[in-house]
Every structure is written in C-alpha cells, then in structure tokens.
Simulated scan of single mutants.
Amino acid sequence: MPTLLGGLRRRLLAPSLTSVSFAGRGFPITPSAATSRLETVPQAVVCGFEWGIEAPALWEIERRLDMIEPEQRGFAYEGATMAATILDVMPGRRRDRTRELLEGPGKPHIFLAYIGIGFAMARLPRPLWKKVLPELTGVPYHPVMSWLAVDGYGFDRAYFDTRRWVDEQYVPKPYPWEDRPDYFLRAVDQGVGRALWFIHGANPGDVADAVNRFAGHRRADLWSGVGLASTFAGGCGRQGLALLRDAAGEHQDELALGMVFAVKARTYSGFVPPHTRLAATTLGGLTLDAAHELGDRTEVAADAPGPEPAYEQWRQRIRDHFAVSGQRLAS
C-alpha cells in the first residue's frame, strides 16, 4: 500500500492526465479516434510514474503495471523508471530502485525504460545526471542503448517546452553522456523528432513540415525519431505511412532506421501490435521478421572501437543496409 509520504510525492510531482493531453499542451491537432488513441501514450507514462513515485515494493509496482494493456505497458514502465530514477538521486534515499526495476520486471521494456531515465533527467539539475544510469547485470543492450535516455530528455523538452525547443529550435549545451559530448546533441534531436510525431498528432504532412523547419544538419536525426515513434506508437494507416515515407525524401533511410529500432523494442518486449508490422513493410519494405533480423545482425558491441559511440555505429550499419539495398522504396 502507498505510504502517506508516497502519496504526497505523487501529488507534488506527478502531472495530471489533462496536462499531458494534446489539448492540454495546446498542440495543433484536430481530435479524432486516432489522436485519442495516440495520447493514451503520455497518459500511460503518467500512470506508471504515479505508481512508481509512491515507492511501493517492486512486486506491487509489477502487479500494477501488469494491469496495463500490453500495447501500452512499455510506456507505463517509462513512467515507473522515471520515478525510480528520481527517488534514487534524492538525498538520504536508497540508490538501487532503478537497477532492481530494470534487472527485474522492467527488463523486457529496457528500451523504453532508458527513455524514462531521460524524462527524469529533464527534471533534475545536470550535476545529478551522473547518478541516473545504474550499473546493470545480465541486461541485453546495456549500456549501448543508454543513449535512449538522452533521446528521452530531448522528447520531454520538446513535448513540454514546445515553443522553445521546437518553434525556436533551441540547442542545449552538450553533456558528456558515456564520455561522448560530441554525440549528445544528435541523440537529443532523435528525441525531438519522436516528439514531433505526437505534437502533430501523427499527421504525416504536418510532421514533415515541422522537421523541414529545422536546420538542415539536424533533419536526419529528427527523421529517425519520427520513424521510431510512428512504428512503435502508431497513429496512422498504410496510406499515411506511405505519405510519410515519401515526405522524408533523401532521409528515407533515417526513417527506416528508426523503424528497425522500434521493431527491436517491440519484439523484445514480447508484444507487437499490427501498426508496427505495417510500418516495417511501408517504411522499410521489410517483413517484421526481416526487420528484427536486420537489427540483430547489425548490432555493435559496447566496447567497439571507432570514432562514433557503439550506438551510432549500430545505427550506421542499419542505415547502410537501406542505402545499398534500396528496400526502403518498397510499399
């Protein structure tokens, strides 16, 4: 059962469902059944955060999150991980909630859990960021995919401070995540691109226009974020995805790259919704199995040498596949 202190933390720290809704954020979206379904994503994150910030036993958090429908459960784990991260860095608190969550019931949702760490980073002063990433044992994709925490930070800022981060195209100061400050801004933009999918209600034309308002050197990473969001969260059908693919133009490879990572995340979680299968075919010209296999065979070890982080080397191998094969043009 939640404690009095846990309930107080939830009241003080948890956003309301209204405040994360598209209307609550003032996004330029015409309400529809599709946008209503899409905005359940941030609302699932809030539910996970509320349950996590009360700091119940891990077993109770797991039981609560199991009640979320499979399609949205990973997003709820984002929120629970965000809460665990904030609790871990509080003075006088235990330091292992995030590790226990991610080595335990959160392991199948590790991709989205990293994003939850990024949500916490958006609410913590930078000096505390060095404490947010736990040392994990027996968790695949760690720490290579921890760059998704920086992605999550970018998503959060674009979603909640849209005027500054999207309209004014704010560029934050680099941070030495994984000792690579040179890559920080690129990972941030991948998150901003994901946010654009939600800010514009999965409308392909509006999303493309938003990306194209950014400086040219930022668009590739923005498009990869759009590809990830459209594949993992859904929001439009085959025709809309085909329009999105065509609108990406020279960045179709980036769009397909985001799709492959979304397929990896969905298949690893154990639940793949129909819209993810559809995006694999439409954005990348691949079956779901082929997209998953592509992600597997291009994986890069955490200690791989090179001028780029292993995460970006992995992304580049996927990007190269589409550039060489031309499969992205299939519909």
Rank of each mutant, 00 (worst) to 15 (best):
T3L: 09
T18W: 15
S21W: 10
G24K: 09
P28C: 07
A34F: 06
V46Y: 04
W51C: 11
G52L: 01
G52A: 12
G52S: 08
I53R: 08
L65E: 02
I68N: 00
E69W: 11
P70I: 05
R73H: 05
A80V: 14
L87F: 08
V89F: 04
G92F: 14
G104R: 15
P105V: 11
P108S: 05
I115S: 03
G116R: 08
I117C: 09
F119W: 11
A120Y: 02
R123Q: 11
P127Y: 04
W129F: 07
T137M: 05
Y141K: 03
H142G: 01
W147R: 00
L148C: 06
L148E: 04
V150N: 02
W165R: 07
Y170W: 14
P176G: 01
W177D: 04
Y183Q: 13
L185M: 09
G193K: 08
I199Y: 00
H200L: 04
P204E: 05
G205V: 12
D209C: 04
A210M: 08
R213P: 02
A215K: 14
W223R: 02
S224F: 02
G225W: 03
V226R: 01
L241H: 03
D246N: 14
A247F: 09
L255A: 05
G258I: 02
V272Y: 12
P274K: 03
T276M: 02
L286T: 11
T298G: 04
V300C: 05
A301V: 12
P305E: 12
P305Q: 05
G306K: 01
E312Y: 12
A323Y: 00
G326Y: 05
